[in-house]
Each structure stands twice: as C-alpha cells, then as structure tokens.
Design a protein around this nucleic acid. Structure first.
Lengths: 179, 179
DNA sequence: CGGCATATCTTGACGATGACAAGTTTGTGC
DNA sequence: GCACAAACTTGTCATCGTCAAGATATGCCG
C-alpha cells in the first residue's frame, strides 16, 4: 500500500499476486519464497526485504484478503446476500481465503492484519445484529459457521460439486435454512 | 492396524501419535519428519519405511481421523447429537481434523483413507436423510456446513471463545437454528 | 537348531528451502 | 551533486524431505 519498489517496478505486488495464485493451486504449505522470486525474475533473497519472512508474506496475504472480503460484504444489502457474498469471495479468492482464518500461518498480531480483520468482522457482526438483534449471539455464530463451513468445504476440495452447480444460489438456499 | 514393528516396539503408532499432537500444536505445515524421528529416538529415515513420505504420514492421520469420527458419530442418536459429536470430535482431535478435510496435504486416493472417508460420509448422509428426507440435499449441506464451519473456526483459532464456554451446548444451540 | 529371507532401522548423501549477513546498485532529498 | 536510504544481489548456514545402500534383528522352514 505504501511501499514503492524502485528497481523491479512493483515487486511487492507481483510477489503477492504470485503467492495468492500459488496458494490457490497447491496450498499454503507448499508455498516457496524462492520459487516466487524465481518466477518474478529476482534473486532468492529479494522477498525478504518486502516481507520479513514467509509468515510476513502470508500476513500481507491475509490483510489483503480481509480488506477484499470487507469490500465484497459492503455490497450485500440483506442477510442472505451477505452469506452469498461470503461464499462467493471464498471461491473467487481461494488463495486469500486459505490463509485468512488460519492465524498459525502468519503474524496474527501484525497491526495491518488486525485492523483489516477487525473492520471486516465488525461488518459481519453488524449485519447479524440487524438480522437477529443483539441480545443473542448464537444465531450470528450459526450463520457465520454455515457460510464459513460451506466456503471451507468447497475450496479445500472436500465437497464434490457437480460442475454446473451455481455456488451462489446454493449458498443462498443453505443460508435460508436458518431461522 | 496390521503392521508390527520389531525393533522399536511400535514405532508406527508412536510416530502417528507424535504427529497428531505436533499438528495440533503448530499446524500441519510445520510438521517435520526428522523432528518426529528425533522425539521417538530413531534415525531420521526410520519414518520412511512406515509411511512412504510426508504425505503418506498425513494420509495415515487422515484415515485414522475418519475412522475415529465415524465411531464418534455412531454414538449420536438424533440430528442435534450428530452435530454436537462432529464439533466435539474436532475440538478433542484437532490434529486429525486439521488434516482430514484438506486432501492437498495427503494422498487422497489411498485405499485406506478412501474407505474410511466413505464409511463416515455415508453415516452423515444417512443421518441427514433421516432428519430431512432424501429428496432435497440442501438441508444436509447446510447442516454439514454449519458444524464443519464451527469446528474449523474453533480449531483454527479464528473464533475467540470465552474460556468457560461449553462447546457442546454451543454447537447444539447453533444446530437447532436450522429448520 | 541353523541358516536364510525379510522386515526394521541406520548411515550417508543430495538438492531445495528459509533465514541471515554483507556487499552492490539505484533512486530520493537536501 | 552528494550523502543517504531503499531495493536488490551474492554467499552462506542449518534444516528439511527423499533416496540409496548397508547393518541388524526377527520369524520361518527345514
């Protein structure tokens, strides 16, 4: 957001994008800093300067993910639309989603990621309050669990979907089973 | 289940247990075969013979996990109890759960894991049929998503629970929000 | 009881990785 | 235009997963 690489042009951004697609393809565990550097055409130690270490890179991925999720949720006007937006975000940004909710992978106390996460969870919480009232937190937890579980099952490949399935309408139908 | 190590006593079991606790503590990505071997007091190449490679070890973890989950689900008699058992299994076996539904981590076509997984998913499917009928698969998906999402959020540390919270009753309350 | 096949484990090596230290190039601001 | 800092390179180290080859113990079959 504020760093301006000089020599390469925009190495930080290039590395971030490459990391996200690599995670989406082979998982966060298989991510290799040296491989990213190779693809970007820089030396093996170049990433260190932009993201202290591997966890630092994943921290940036998580922060960007929370920010993008926040933007996606902002466009949803009612409860079901929020759920659909959540699942749709996971399927369209699998690389980000695979990192965001797994704090063991990154520096969970990093100010940037904490800020982005708090802003997004506050949006979710607000939406739940509007839908269910703020006296009981069980419905909110149930709703979050439902969309999060569906998103997780899909992007982890645990849920075998027919190729033609419309994920959005499936998510809407499932969300509407909540009362 | 059928292998009987000779020299060490029961190396395969010891390695599996150590792997499960290590995954529960630091995540599957940080797992090190050499570290496991060190803790078991054997050479760094000893695990290779029992589990071809790292993915092979995780395959065994996943297979055992599905088998244990099946046993846990078998003791649940109604729909809500099944959901509670699912979440409880995740919290009591975080090391297994962190691997089972992430097939990129292991050999997803391994016969043992396929058999164990199919047996367990068939139990889930049967429970859903009894609760909702077999004409619509949306409620079953919603139910699985809900409990899976809740379990995932808890064991990944994304959900901050008050220390005293009873996970079982929370899971039951959330599951009962489904109609 | 004795030797042999085999399962179990060790030793040694290789390429790859993440992290660190120290040096080099390039742009920025005074 | 010059010091300074940011961006990147080169070199190195311990560690890791995997493979190959050897050592050792166990069970089997006569």
């Amino acid at each position: 957001m504020d760093e301006k690489p000089y020599h390469h042009g925009d190495l930080r951004r290039v590395l971030l994008d490459a990391a996200v697609t690599a995670i989406a393809e082979r998982g966060a565990a298989a991510l290799s800093l040296r491989d990213l550097a190779r693809r970007a055409g820089v030396s093996h130690a170049a990433p260190t300067h932009h993201f202290r270490d591997k966890a630092g890179l994943l921290t940036a991925v998580a922060a960007e993910g929370f920010s993008l999720l926040g933007k996606a949720l902002a466009e949803a006007d009612d409860f079901a639309a929020t759920g659909v937006a959540y699942v749709r975000f996971a399927t369209t940004h699998p690389g980000h989603f695979a990192v965001m909710f797994r704090p063991v992978l990154y520096h969970r106390d990093d100010p940037a990621v904490v800020a982005a996460r708090d802003r997004t969870t506050e949006m979710l919480r607000g939406g739940a309050r509007r839908a269910f009232g703020d006296d009981d937190r069980v419905p909110a937890l149930a709703a979050w669990s439902l969309v999060h579980g569906m998103a997780t099952l899909i992007i982890d490949g645990a849920l075998e979907l027919d190729p033609g399935t419309d994920v959005a309408s499936l998510a809407r139908a499932a969300a509407l089973r909540l009362r």
